[in-house]
Nucleic acid binder design. Structure first.
Length: 548
RNA sequence: GGCCCCGUGGUCAAGCGGUUAAGACAUCGCCCUUUCACGGCGGAGACAUGGGUUCGAUUCCCGUCGGGGUCACCA
């Protein structure tokens, strides 16, 4: 009896690994092409930190003409959520980050290196597990969870390192005969790695982001195949990223401490190790301290938050790029209209410590992103957003022609308007442009000139003598000045400032009266443009309502 | 607790042995302006701490403190 017999008993039907090695040949890619992936478990939930990884991984693949794929890590049935894969795929799509290969729905996928869903790869993992058993590099373990718990308890009490290693690894020393016997009588078991590592020896490793790190070797006989026949994360990682020919494993730095294990696994399996880049998490300020953005406590941890708020995907991606490489910002300033593809992202320039999440910064970026949109783009994006999130806004946008006029105010010129940072701001920013909404609102708050009779006087005279919808902007404003002068106000603000006691107010105060009367606001975009969009009829209606 | 990573203004961050210690967001002031959003100019504001090494440390080494990660048949 030898290891081969044991392996055959445990996995009688497993194919030789050569079969898979040939089935998944080296990818034909140009020199330097990066193959990387996003490998979530199908919870349907995408964390901002995950999106960050996706942005980076995908960008690295894109800029080297490589491949970015999506692999679903569903080896833990407890974590599974109905339609979880769809949720993830849709989130990626929402941000324009569709993978090149991998799962495309709950059941479909594209690419030659599948299946891309781990539960469908059971045979593959077992083949490699068998391969290890044959060489005596893995073994069946019959310890029950109760025994394991008890063992851990003992170790804790004795204040020694917990785990299945050294003298604690009971089943590692079972002979092949003993193991076979136990299996034959039906004792349940799992498969463990027979780790050759020693805790008192160090390994050095270079992480692209973290730099050189040093760890004790792994000496834990970790589980590679669980009782349900599925692999653990670590084993699946090694097998999958080998067969899928991942060149760069880009993942969260919670995995950094698993490096000794992963390196060992690759080595024992005879695989070439990929390069690793461990990304620091995105943190959140929490009364004085820092902590990871939490799925439970922080709504902004979920990427759905950004779509719900109506922050354009471009803004979120730019923000993430900003955190990733600090030179991105100056690049963007120098190339305001360049495609993201033209930026050269560098993993080794990424920060080793976790950045605090900054919603103010993201909104600032968003404001700039939106300011570059054309009216048509704003319309389309906002319309799409409103369809699911804001029925009232959707109604306003119903008249597309009119909406485009509103959205075109102070847009498209050298200094475009920058007052909208998310679609959820939009309704409030345009609502007064609609007669039905505006005329129902009676609460007008005026500025310096707020006496009702005076306001009426100004408006009356304006309508009678100075209002002509066909005026060019200069003529229009000259008339406001004339109006001011006729009523005893300073026609220039500068004049007023020099001798403030000479006038009761200035042209700005007069135009504020007009502004408030027409919009209900003291602060608005350019009044002339607003009036042009409102049109003669609406303007007269609005003024007459006050003048009576 | 063991192991590992990290520590430059409020935030994100350049800098990597000699710098007046960049820049962006936020903040404050001024200018521009019929209001606002912009834009322009300027101000305030930082090398966690204690020891070394060195002619010289934000930069290198050690300790302390602080923050984070990880120690599963979860990923």
């Amino acid at each position: 009896m030898n290891y081969k017999d044991l392996a055959d008993l445990i996995f009688p039907n497993a194919k030789p690994i050569l079969y898979y090695e040939e089935k998944y040949p080296e990818r034909k890619l140009e020199e330097g092409a990066i193959v990387t992936r996003f490998a979530p478990s199908p919870t349907g939930f995408v964390h901002l930190g995950s999106l960050y990884q996706v942005v980076i991984a995908r960008k690295m693949a894109k800029q080297t003409n490589g491949v970015f794929f999506l692999r679903v890590e569903d080896t833990d049935q407890k974590r599974e959520v109905e339609n979880g894969v769809t949720g993830i795929i849709n989130s990626l799509k929402d941000f324009g980050l569709t993978p090149d290969e991998g799962m495309t729905s709950e059941i479909e996928e594209i690419g030659d290196y599948g299946p891309y869903k781990q539960s469908l790869r059971k045979d593959i993992y077992q083949a490699y597990a068998k391969y290890l058993i044959e060489q005596g590099k893995a073994y069946p373990c019959f310890c029950s969870t109760e025994e394991l718990d008890e063992m851990r308890q003992k170790q804790e009490n004795a204040k020694i390192r917990p785990g299945y290693y050294g003298v604690w690894a009971h089943c590692r020393n079972l002979t092949v005969e003993e193991a076979i016997e136990k299996i034959k009588v039906g004792e349940p078991y799992i498969i463990r790695l027979k780790s050759p590592g020693r805790e008192d020896k160090k390994i050095r490793h270079h992480d692209i982001i973290k730099g050189n790190v040093e760890f004790p070797e792994n000496d834990q006989d970790i589980v590679i195949i669980k009782a349900d026949g599925l692999p653990t994360y670590h084993f699946a990682h090694a097998v999958d990223d080998h067969l899928m020919h991942t060149t760069h494993v880009i993942r969260g730095d919670e995995w950094l401490s698993s490096i000794p294990l992963h390196l060992q696994l690759f080595q024992m399996l005879g695989f070439k190790t990929p390069k690793y880049a461990h990304i620091s998490p995105i943190m959140k300020e929490d009364n004085g301290g820092k902590r990871k953005l939490s799925k439970r406590k922080d709504p902004e941890a979920a990427v759905s938050y950004y779509t719900e708020e109506g922050i354009p995907k471009e803004a979120v991606v730019e923000y993430l790029m900003n955190i990733a490489n600090s030179n991105f910002e100056s690049w963007r300033k120098a190339n305001p209209n360049a495609l993201l593809d033209d930026f050269d992202l560098q993993l080794n320039k990424m920060s080793v410590s976790g950045a605090l999440f900054d919603i103010i910064k993201i909104l600032d970026i968003s404001k700039n992103v939106i300011s570059k949109f054309t009216a048509e783009e704003v319309y389309n994006e906002a319309y799409n957003w409103a369809k699911t999130y804001d029925a009232e806004l959707l109604k306003l946008l119903d008249d597309k022609e009119y909406a485009l006029k509103i959205l075109g105010i102070e847009r498209g010129n050298a200094k475009p308007r920058k007052d909208i940072s998310k679609w959820s701001d939009l309704k409030n920013a345009i609502i007064y442009m609609y007669d039905e909404e505006f005329l129902n609102n009676n609460e007008l708050e005026y500025g310096k000139i707020n006496e009702h009779e005076e306001i009426k006087k100004i408006l009356k005279l304006y309508l009678q003598k100075y209002f002509d919808i066909n005026d060019e902007k200069q003529a229009w404003f000259d008339k406001i000045k004339d109006l001011s002068e006729e009523l005893g106000y300073a026609r220039e603000v500068k004049m007023f400032k020099q001798e403030p006691e000479k006038w009761p107010g200035h042209v700005g105060d007069v135009s504020t009266v007009l502004r408030v009367s027409l919009t209900g606001r003291q602060n608005t975009p350019d009044l002339y443009e607003i009036m042009q969009v409102l049109g003669k009829e609406s303007i007269e209606k609005r003024i007459r309502k006050i003048v009576k």
